[in-house]
Design a protein around this nucleic acid. Sequence first.
DNA 1: AGTTTAAGTCAGCCTTGTTGACATTCCAAG
DNA 2: CTTGGAATGTCAACAAGGCTGACTTAAACT
Lengths: 170, 170
Amino acid sequence: MADGRTGSGFSGDSLLFLTDEQLRQGIEAMFFAYRGFTADPDRILAELAYGRAHHRAIHFINRAPGTTVNNLLAILGVTKQSLNRVLRTLIADGLVESRVGKADKRERHLFLTEAGRELESKLSDAQRARMRAAYKEAGPEAVTGFRQVLEAMMDVDMRRAHSKLRDGTS
Amino acid sequence: MADGRTGSGFSGDSLLFLTDEQLRQGIEAMFFAYRGFTADPDRILAELAYGRAHHRAIHFINRAPGTTVNNLLAILGVTKQSLNRVLRTLIADGLVESRVGKADKRERHLFLTEAGRELESKLSDAQRARMRAAYKEAGPEAVTGFRQVLEAMMDVDMRRAHSKLRDGTS
DNA sequence: AGTTTAAGTCAGCCTTGTTGACATTCCAAG
DNA sequence: CTTGGAATGTCAACAAGGCTGACTTAAACT
């Protein structure tokens, strides 16, 4: 919007409308939107004395059941000490189960317990509800664009991790 | 991509394609993209022993020079104690200047110093470069959709704050 | 047998959120 | 004019969750 700068000659002209000011607005929108994005789960987690770190672990274990600790580490992008602290409380609280690997006994495979799945649903429902509402408000075309920009904003390795999760729940 | 579901007749049917699975993908995309979004500034900040909190403060002070602490508080959504700690170091390091209000001496008005503006540029340049690249890769139509969804995902008060920043730098 | 890999632990640090207590300033009601 | 409450900002102390580094245990590879 704003300056409708149409029909310039060259093909690189999709760049012309990207003023620094508009990029800044995109940056701020990302900041504010991310807050909204995490707000609902945060409220639920606060009651349980958990944090976002627990949410992330639960989310990805649910997404890829049986994943190993190392695998999770790569996805979450934290150190194993940091993850371990969170994982330990989740296992102690009976939300996550850790099974020794059959093929490779060094590995631990992670699963959600029934209670874990319950909390996952609760968190996920809240977050999806907001997502759904936003998608609905913006319309289907906007959603496609949204996903394209997000995808392009990731680091390459994350893009791989993301499409791996998308396709096969190996 | 995937299912190109074009030219539907009515507007309400935009809901049909929002399976839980697709919402989940959106959620994950948001998570991974936010990491990319902050990655470049984070690297710069790490060298200076600053964190994201410093970046946010610098960003919004630059955006609305002369803003009060209270104002900034509302935008950043943290407690004043938390902000104060960050602000103190920025002032001590000569990046931010705090002037006592003329009308109301309780208020402090915040400005970036020359050094502050310099760091702001450096951080902003990095972040904008990634944003610009993502926008370019996704195309102008996608950008519009991206912004629409983000806007719809914010809490209402943040939407107000955002458009206030967009329009007048009061 | 020796090396590498997966996982876990302990200790200690930093950033950045929180609450609680407190000083200063302003303003309005008595 | 004074006084008490509200607003603004500061200081202190604590917790979550990142980080690094050093180390152990067990299993797998070579």
